[in-house]
Design a protein around this nucleic acid. Structure first.
Length: 906
RNA sequence: GCAGAGGUAACGAAGCGGUCAAACGUGUAAGGCUUAGGACCUUAUGGCUUAGGCCUUCGAGGGUUCAAAUCCCUCCCUCUGCACCA
């Protein structure tokens, strides 16, 4: 029967924590606070190991901070804004078999499903309950009193309304149109997840340049308006169907039939559309609106009528397709030499080179196009043929070209998807210009600057995530903050819109500080001026009731947020929005202070995903392995790399716990003897405390585990191996061990600590072990390293002679040798110049040997007396080990070095 | 395409100028224990050696340095994000 019975231990301490309300935190001005959060979650399914990974990482930090004596708040809310919850509810309502199966697999009954189908809130509450019990099971120290649902809580909606009115007053809200990938059949925006094909494709803006012919307009679509001076002709495709479209401003455009179908999604509706025989234009000339040049209209089958207008302007010297077809056409039609308008210094004949390099097939030309565009964009200069554009780098010329075209009254624009997008429903996605959309102006330069400045001060763990976040902020564009469907808070001044989920969740962490109090208030009691008073410290316009004062005290105490823990995919959206909105709205002393970013979790080498079926629910893992074992998962990685969790690790963990429990049990059988090895262990423990603390602070839990757990146990074993048997030392060691590991494995460490030291729960007082400077003893550690090395050598030698030794003689080098050795060691730290070292000491055979290998110069202080003592004290242990006579003596033989005794094995 | 991160032994991963043939864990192997298996304990785990030694390694190729896995340059490869979608 193993000593380690996780279920029993965990139940015991789980109850103790519950009883002492360990996780419930209230403002207490006498104590330092620590506020940690993980983003809200959508309660639409059971929690699995992936969740456990992120939440345990936050929990470990929370426990670590409690042990440092801080008052820690770790709340958790749920999110129901937007599509997922409403979507699932709808799917159930429509009897979607798959959705029903998903629900049943997760423990919902027929009745539950019926309730969910009518009301997404029921769905959320159902899983919300399982979240609480799952998190409790695995020991996530959440204060559930402060739980609330975004944005299903009326009080919270008031908060969001206040937030948006405030942002608007501050000038951070604008309205405008916005291109969105759209499904014309289902008439909704087409997010990545809704696509059968074309994930990652986004709206791409094309410039339309209006070429004129006989009062008609030929709108050529291009990504490179800066090449307008190099246009040699227009291309159309005679195989395509074209239409004449009349707009209300009187303009008549010739465009492809497909274009007329996309038109309503982006431009004003055409007044009249009629068939047009495109062939009648072939051979005629149109007028380039910028330089008034006449350009011929030619047929080319490469023109795709389902892309853009079906009219293409041809710039042979800068577009491989144009170049290729232009040269072919020259055989039939008399054409001018095309004009080169961009020079690339390093490649004077870029076009020829590109065609030669890539070839002339369709695919090849596409690659050549990419190459030419990229090279010209980065290194090209507009040459003197370009009117007002001349001399400008291509990078800048585009903007100026658009201005120029606008001046001539020949500009328009049109969006296409950057690649083909197919909706799950089978329809081909296109771009819709959503009108009157509301934006948050994250593009604001000042706001970006302030945010980036602040980010420099923030504790970002791991450090390399900081660069990513700064980058994300730097590249931030305006964010569409509203949407049409789903759940959410209506935009207060334009209730046709709902505030979308990434925008109603940027400052809700502040809401946690008073979530349990505001619950008591009626929504109509809640006003903007109340939030102004609590959150922005504005002078109250009236006296507020006591509960508001209490809310303010909680907010003032807990804010700012000290740590937000999340997976890396949120960096470029949520994390950036979260920090920027704080910087925009709050006083500087309320801006967030720290972040912890982690990667994905892999289990037994495989990326976890529902579709692969390798997700394990939290209750499954805990019930099978125990909560402490399950929490090993948090140490699966140090940084943002994918975290690898190997279930095999659990076994080793349990075994080592078993060892520590056993040691704890027999602690009274150890002696009062103190020897050198006690100094060794105390020194090691100091080192381990220091390093695990560092690792915890930077959330490198893999390292924490290494120091506080594995290395710690190795050192305790070494201590015993080298003859250590002092009761106090061991008691101290086990106590420190239980404390250092408590954040990672709260239950079993509480058990161990409690068995040795009757006292309060580890997180109810400042229990984190202190570093004792006087325990640090480098010399002793070095000499025990020598012992370890020597034992290794002995083993080696025994292997070689291949017989059981009768006698082992260990010859410690003489005292003078140690003197010389240490003198050299001192120099080594500032210089490895052999000449310098030779100057400093008298040369003899011994010195020559020491200096023989410049890579192995002395670099650890050693001590003659200690070395002697280390071996003398472990003599009986060595004797036991090898079952041989052990002789420890001073040796003046050449082979005896400080730190490397001479060995004779007989 | 743009931006960011990264490539270390069978695997995960530490190290980020000298203490590095490279912590720690897992896996594997041998020995011990055991009726046996599992579990556990000990040892080994780049190559060649065999009186404690030598040689070759940290994506590839160059460079800086007395000294490079660690610093610089070039190339190759992998991962992540790119917004109205959570």
């Amino acid at each position: 029967m193993p000593r380690y019975q996780p279920e029993e231990i965990e139940k015991k301490w789980r109850n103790a924590y519950e009883e002492k309300k360990l996780y419930e935190a209230d403002a207490d001005e006498k104590r330092e606070k620590f506020f940690v959060t993980v983003p809200v979650m959508y309660p639409d399914g059971r929690l699995h190991t992936g969740h456990m990974y992120t939440w345990t990482r936050a929990d470990i930090f929370a426990r670590f901070q409690r042990m440092k004596g801080k008052n820690v708040l770790f709340p958790q809310g749920f999110h129901m804004t937007g599509g997922p919850m409403a979507g699932m509810s709808l799917r159930l309502k429509s009897g979607d078999e798959k959705a029903i199966k998903i629900m049943k697999d997760q423990g919902a009954t027929e009745d539950d499903i019926k309730r969910f189908a009518g009301n997404p809130l029921e769905l959320g509450l159902f899983f919300g309950k399982t979240y609480k019990s799952d998190f409790d099971l695995v020991g996530t120290s959440i204060d559930w009193r402060r739980n609330f649902i975004l944005s299903y809580t009326e009080q919270y909606s008031k908060f969001v309304e206040w937030q948006f009115r405030t942002l608007r007053e501050m000038g951070y809200i604008t309205q405008g149109s916005h291109p969105v990938v759209w499904c014309p059949r289902e008439n909704t925006s087409l997010g990545d997840h809704d696509r059968a094909e074309g994930e990652g494709e986004s709206p791409l803006e094309f410039t339309i340049i209006k070429f004129k012919i006989d009062g008609l307009i030929l709108p050529a679509a291009t990504l490179r308006p800066e090449t307008i001076y190099g246009v040699s002709n227009l291309w159309i495709n005679e195989q395509g169907e074209y239409k004449k479209v009349r707009f209300s401003n009187g303009e008549e455009w010739i465009v492809s039939k497909e274009f007329t179908e996309k038109l309503p999604f982006q431009k004003n509706v055409a007044e009249k559309i009629e068939d047009f025989g495109i062939s009648e234009l072939v051979g005629k000339t149109a007028i380039n609106p910028v330089n008034k040049e006449e350009v011929p209209i030619l047929n080319a089958e490469f023109v795709k009528t389902d892309r853009n207008t079906g009219i293409v302007m041809s710039v042979p010297m800068h577009a491989p397709f144009d170049y290729d077809y232009y040269n072919k056409k020259k055989a039939d039609v008399k054409l001018k030499e095309p004009l080169k308008v961009i020079d690339v210094k390093t490649n004077p004949n870029l076009m020829e080179e590109a065609i030669k390099r890539f070839g002339a097939g369709e695919k090849e030309l596409e690659n050549a196009t990419k190459y030419v565009y990229k090279t010209e964009f980065n290194y090209g200069i507009m040459n003197e043929n370009n009117g007002p554009l001349s001399g400008r780098p291509v990078k800048e010329a585009k903007e100026y070209a658009i201005e120029l075209i606008k001046e001539k009254g020949a500009y328009d624009n049109f969006y296409e998807t950057s690649g083909e997008v197919i909706c799950r429903c089978g329809a081909r996605g296109l771009i819709k210009l959503v009108e009157n959309q509301w934006f948050i102006r994250y593009s604001d330069k000042k706001l970006k600057e302030k945010t980036i400045d602040w980010l420099q001060n923030m504790d970002v763990r791991p450090e390399e995530a900081k660069a990513q976040i700064i980058n994300a902020v730097y590249n931030m564009e305006d964010k569409a903050a509203t949407r049409n469907g789903g759940l959410g808070t209506p935009l207060p001044w334009d209730k046709t819109w709902l505030i979308e989920p990434l925008s109603d969740s940027t400052i809700y962490m502040a809401y946690y500080t008073f979530a349990h109090l505001i619950k008591e208030m009626k929504p109509e009691e809640i006003s903007d001026s109340m939030f102004d008073y609590i959150l922005l410290d504005k002078k109250p316009d009236k006296k507020f009731p006591e509960i508001v004062e209490k809310m303010k005290r909680e907010f003032e105490y807990w804010y700012p947020l000290d740590l937000r823990v999340t997976a890396k995919e949120l960096i470029t959206n949520h994390i950036a929005f979260f920090i920027m909105t704080h910087v925009a709205m709050f006083n500087k002393d309320k801006w967030p202070r720290g972040l912890g970013i982690n990667g994905w979790l892999t289990v037994n080498g495989k990326k976890m995903s529902k579709s692969k079926g390798n997700t394990m629910t939290i209750d499954y893992v805990v019930n099978n392995y125990g909560a402490d074992s399950a929490r090993l998962i948090s140490s699966a990685s140090n940084g943002m790399d994918d975290a690898a969790w190997d279930l095999n690790n659990i076994n080793g963990f349990k075994q080592k716990i078993e060892f520590m429990l056993e040691l704890t049990e027999v602690i009274e059988s150890f002696s009062e003897d103190k020897r050198l090895v006690d100094e060794f262990l105390l020194s090691r423990i100091n080192y381990l405390i220091e390093n695990s603390e560092k690792a915890y602070n930077s959330m490198k839990y893999k390292n924490s585990l290494n120091y506080s757990f594995f290395e710690f146990i190795e050192n305790v074993k070494d201590y015993i191996d080298y003859g250590g048997n002092n009761k106090d030392t061991l008691k101290y060691a086990i106590t420190v061990f239980s404390k250092l590991n408590h954040p990672l494995f709260p239950f079993v460490t509480e058990e161990i600590n409690n068995a040795l030291n009757k006292g309060d729960l580890l997180e109810r007082y400042r229990s984190w072990p202190e570093i004792n400077e006087e325990y640090k003893n480098e010399l002793v550690e070095n000499e025990f390293e020598v012992l370890k090395q020597t034992i290794n050598d002995i083993n080696n030698l025994i292997n070689i002679i291949d017989k059981d030794p009768k006698e082992i003689i260990i010859g410690i080098a003489g005292k003078e040798k140690f003197g010389i050795y240490n003198k050299i060691e001192e120099i080594t730290h500032r210089s490895r110049d052999i000449k310098e070292i030779r100057k400093a000491v008298q040369i003899n055979d011994f010195v020559n040997k020491l200096l023989k290998n410049p890579k192995r110069l002395p670099n650890k202080k050693l001590d003659y007396e200690l070395e002697m003592k280390v071996f003398t004290e472990s003599k009986s242990k060595l004797k036991e080990m090898y079952n041989a006579e052990i002789k420890i003596e001073e040796s003046n033989e050449d082979r005896a070095f400080p730190g490397k005794p001479m060995l004779v094995i007989k």
